[in-house]
Nucleic acid binder design. Structure first.
Length: 222
DNA sequence: CACGGGATCGTCT
DNA sequence: GACGATCCCGTGT
């Protein structure tokens, strides 16, 4: 097995946000908050790309107090409040001035299962521990306090680690993004990616898994 | 399981 | 003053 590697800033400077969104599948999202470390393997992502993408907050490079984080250099956390309740975590990509970002929509728990279950207030062995963007943030204790912080330095609270477990293209399912019906001609772009047969991704995928799975994000027995 | 509505507040018009 | 890149719970089938 390869040695785990903290993704460097160069990884996030790509101008191909759609490819990076796919490549992030299987990487580990690691959060250290108040001395407690929890992590999950990324199972579902969505790409957002200014200026052309109408679903992107920075459509037409709209620059506001909220969107200014998206214009930061790749490797910055973009976290905003959704529906007044949910803190959604995104990773900014591309060089400074280009507002691209990737929404992390689902993770499968790796480190700190118990902690994640407690934060989510759910019993053990439930898929909805982190199969949605708001749930991911609740399980991993991500909140707006980290908006604008970097995610590639050794002591950053939020990091992405590569464990050398790339997801084969044949195991990546692409589809339209969720909840952006208002985005008109952008609403059908297949920029949502999830790992095939992974029960921790958001609906409708998980309904096919009534039982606790016997394989992990990578297809290995657990 | 499908559907509908309420929660709740920062952001932008 | 309106509206979300959502979630949860209740209802009905």
């Amino acid at each position: 097995m390869n040695e785990a590697k903290l993704l460097p800033q160069e990884y996030y400077l790509s101008t191909d946000v759609v490819s990076v969104a796919k490549n992030l599948l299987g990487k580990h999202l690691v959060v250290s908050s108040n001395g407690i470390k929890t992590s999950g393997a990324i199972a579902e992502t969505e790409a957002y790309r200014a200026p052309d993408d109408r679903a992107c907050h920075a459509h037409l490079n709209k620059f506001t107090k909220r969107t200014k984080t998206m214009f930061e250099p790749g490797g910055t956390a973009y976290i905003y409040l959704c529906y007044g309740i949910h803190h959604l975590f995104n990773i900014v990509t591309a060089p400074q001035g280009t507002a691209h970002a990737i929404l992390i929509r689902a993770t499968s728990p790796i480190e700190g299962w118990e902690t994640q279950q407690l934060r989510r207030k759910i019993p053990k062995h439930k898929y909805d521990i982190s199969n949605g963007p708001g749930k991911v943030s609740q399980a991993l204790a991500i909140s707006k306090q980290y908006n604008g912080t970097t995610i590639f330095k050794e002591d950053d609270a939020i990091q992405i680690w590569d464990h050398g477990m790339d997801i084969k293209p044949s195991r990546i399912i692409a589809g339209p993004r969720v909840g952006i019906g208002y985005a008109r001609e952008s609403c059908n772009l297949p920029w949502r990616f999830r790992i095939k047969d992974n029960p921790w991704t958001s609906k409708p995928n998980h309904v096919f898994y009534p039982d606790w799975p016997t394989v992990d994000t990578y297809g290995n027995s657990i």
